[in-house]
Design a protein around this nucleic acid. Structure first.
Lengths: 156, 156
DNA sequence: GTCATATTGACCACGCGCTGTCAATATGTC
DNA sequence: GACATATTGACAGCGCGTGGTCAATATGAC
């Protein structure tokens, strides 16, 4: 296979489609939560905080999201300034305070979730739940195949 | 369905997996072309220029990539400064010069393509070509379902 | 306790995408 | 030709992700 065929390779087409869908999802997410004064990235951080049930510090949230600490830290600081989340003392670690949604943050996240679930339902209805699950499994397998199995190294 | 189930929704899991794979692909791409002095984004622009066979200006390349003009323009300017591509007169439009790879640019792109194809082959071998095609079709259907069918509006 | 190591938060710089705006150029209508 | 409209390139600003570095704090080996 020569370089000229690079565009036709199944892996190339998968990659390009992942890039496009990634962009489309962020655009849809931004539009969805803009009325709430949020962005796609802030919404995602709020989701990770909600999922952790307030039992993780910023670094733990970042690990769950597959991002580096610094990215989440900046957004978390902004969300704290807006009263959407707050940091509480961590009995196990003096510096690594736990991140929790405030009442206002939880209400915002619930509102965002409601909007998203409406769209998510129509999306799955159009695509078929079984096909979606199958694609999720393949995407995960692709990612695990790309990521050298264990890599938790610190950026520094 | 309540907001608490938002994480379990098939569309949510698909979205998160797309985000993760998108990040993994960019990371792999960066690592792949770093020895050539490239980045994932520059490599992608070079690919779009190669695919257009030097018959499109920056705005056309951007449309093909699903990005806005300005993003591609900045990278194209940098690639021109490094002698990887150059702008040639467009007989049909005085301002919109056509973008073409230089000899050096074409050689770099061939080298990057060779590296990628080796990885792409192992990836498809591990996942199964049929499954990959099936996933590509679903991702495209998901994107088309998310994007209001015709939207070419200019940012301004 | 002492030590090396790992983790965390803090700051800074940068890459890459977006939007907004402007002038220059093409295009279509009259 | 005159005009409105669309397209393109240029420039500026911002959001979000990354990496690098530092000090503070936990953890484990001895």
């Amino acid at each position: 296979m020569t370089a000229a065929d690079v565009f036709a390779h199944p892996a190339s087409r998968l990659s390009l489609e992942v890039f496009r869908l990634n962009g489309a999802l962020i655009a849809v997410g931004d539009a969805l939560v803009a009325p709430l004064g949020l962005t796609s990235a802030r919404w995602q951080v709020m989701g990770a905080v909600a999922e952790a049930r307030g039992r993780l510090p910023v670094a733990g949230i970042a690990r769950n999201m597959g991002l580096v600490r610094q990215s989440v830290q900046r957004i978390a600081d902004e969300l704290e300034a807006e009263g959407i989340l707050h940091f509480v003392a961590n009995p196990h670690h003096r510096r690594a305070r736990l991140v929790q949604l405030t009442e206002r943050g939880a209400a915002l996240f619930d509102a965002a979730s409601a909007s998203w679930l409406a769209l998510a339902d129509t999306l799955v209805a159009a695509l078929g739940a079984g096909e979606v699950d199958r694609a999720v499994a393949l995407l995960r397998a692709a990612r695990e195949s790309l990521q050298p199995p264990d890599r938790e190294e610190e950026a520094s």
